[in-house]
């Protein structure tokens, strides 16, 4: 019996032994997948995560390319999800570590009073509550996938994500403004479009496209004028100094390879090596006053090796099993001896 238990415990170990395992951070966006902000064109699926009552800034990320399922889109956008123990990731229970383990153990299907509702929308359309599971729906390219936490809501009062599902039109590459690697209010950014008082989100997404090379426009050094056109085209964006309130705003990297081939999934590592410090964060405020970011500030901290508590636990387990096995053996030998 003890041997059996030990074998059970040891079975699980070698499989996981060679893996680099991430520390269970509260929130983590996998920055190696997807790009922050809206998708620049119809070649990807934009994911909107609205935490609602859970707190936290709404996350907008893009899964580039064709997505097979809503689940794949989430994964490819770098969003961290957790399924329920019973059904696996077919039923999404936790997004970016929320709701926490204290309120939702994610063993069985979460209750109807607190769960992640699944929405979808075409570009420029309106949010629709999905009648399909996350594994069964193929999001069309260029569409939006929304996740909104529904707490104590009914079928009719389920809140859609509070970010309008429309891409900023014409993601023109903005001018590469003077570089400041540290986040700072846009007042200091001379040529920053954000300071020009125009659409902040366009600046952000422009910066994104510039950084990631997704933008098709190869003109670098476009002036404020060019920027102005881009912002005027993006009507859902809030005018005004929205960015100034957002400390996440930083400049795109200096040598943004604007001529990079669009369509290749760009990653953080594609950014030039000079811009190691705070990466460019597309972010903005919707007309409804909803702030959003690309979620890159939640990057996962990798931790190597097996934690000491795990080793201690295994040692304890082996000790108890050995004691139980010894007791069983002693009883058996004694029974045989006396009989």
């Amino acid at each position: 019996m003890a041997r059996l238990i030990t074998a059970l415990a040891l079975l699980a170990l070698p499989a996981a032994a060679r893996l680099t395992v991430a520390a269970p951070a509260a929130q983590a966006v996998d920055t190696s997948k997807g790009t922050p902000g809206y998708c620049p064109d119809a070649g990807g699926v934009t994911i909107v995560i609205d935490f609602q009552e859970l707190g936290g800034t709404t996350i907008v990320r893009c899964a580039r390319g064709d997505q097979a399922t809503g689940h794949a889109a989430l994964k490819n956008a770098g969003i961290e999800i957790a399924g329920v123990a019973r059904w696996g990731e077919a039923f999404i229970c936790r997004i970016e570590g929320k709701p926490g383990a204290n309120s939702e153990p994610c063993i069985d299907t979460p209750p109807a009073s607190a769960y992640w509702s699944y929405w979808h929308a075409p570009n420029g359309g309106s949010w629709t509550y999905s009648q399909w599971g996350v594994m069964n729906r193929k999001p069309p390219p260029g569409s939006f996938e929304g996740w909104s936490f529904a707490k104590n809501k009914t079928e009719t009062t389920n809140p859609p994500p509070r970010v309008a599902p429309s891409r900023p039109a014409a993601p023109a590459t903005q001018d590469p403004p003077p570089r400041t690697n540290n986040p700072q209010p846009p007042a200091g950014n001379g040529g920053n479009p954000g300071s020009s008082g125009n659409g902040t989100t366009s600046a952000a997404s422009g910066g994104n496209s510039g950084k990631t090379g997704g933008g098709s426009a190869s003109t670098v050094g476009g002036s404020n004028g060019a920027n102005g056109t881009s912002t005027s085209g993006t009507d859902p964006l809030a005018p005004g100094p929205g960015v100034s309130g957002n400390p996440m705003e930083a400049e795109p990297p200096p040598a943004a390879p604007a001529s990079e081939v669009p369509g290749t999934a760009p990653t953080e590592s594609a950014a030039p090596p000079g811009s190691a410090a705070p990466s460019a964060q597309p972010s903005g405020i919707t007309p409804q006053g909803q702030t959003w970011t690309g979620g890159e500030e939640l990057a996962t901290k990798k931790r190597e090796g097996i934690p000491t508590t795990t080793i201690a636990g295994i040692a304890l387990l082996v000790a108890i099993c050995a004691a139980a096995g010894f007791t069983t053996w002693r009883r058996r030998t004694r029974a045989d001896g006396s009989g």
């Binding site: 996981a16 893996l19 395992v21 991430a22 520390a23 269970p24 983590a28 996998d30 961290e80 999800i81 957790a82 399924g83 990731e89 996962t300 097996i306 934690p307 508590t309 795990t310 201690a312 636990g313 304890l316």
Partner: peptide, 8 residues
Amino acid sequence: SPLAWPEL
């Protein structure tokens, strides 16, 4: 996801 060691 991400995979983490079970701790005590």
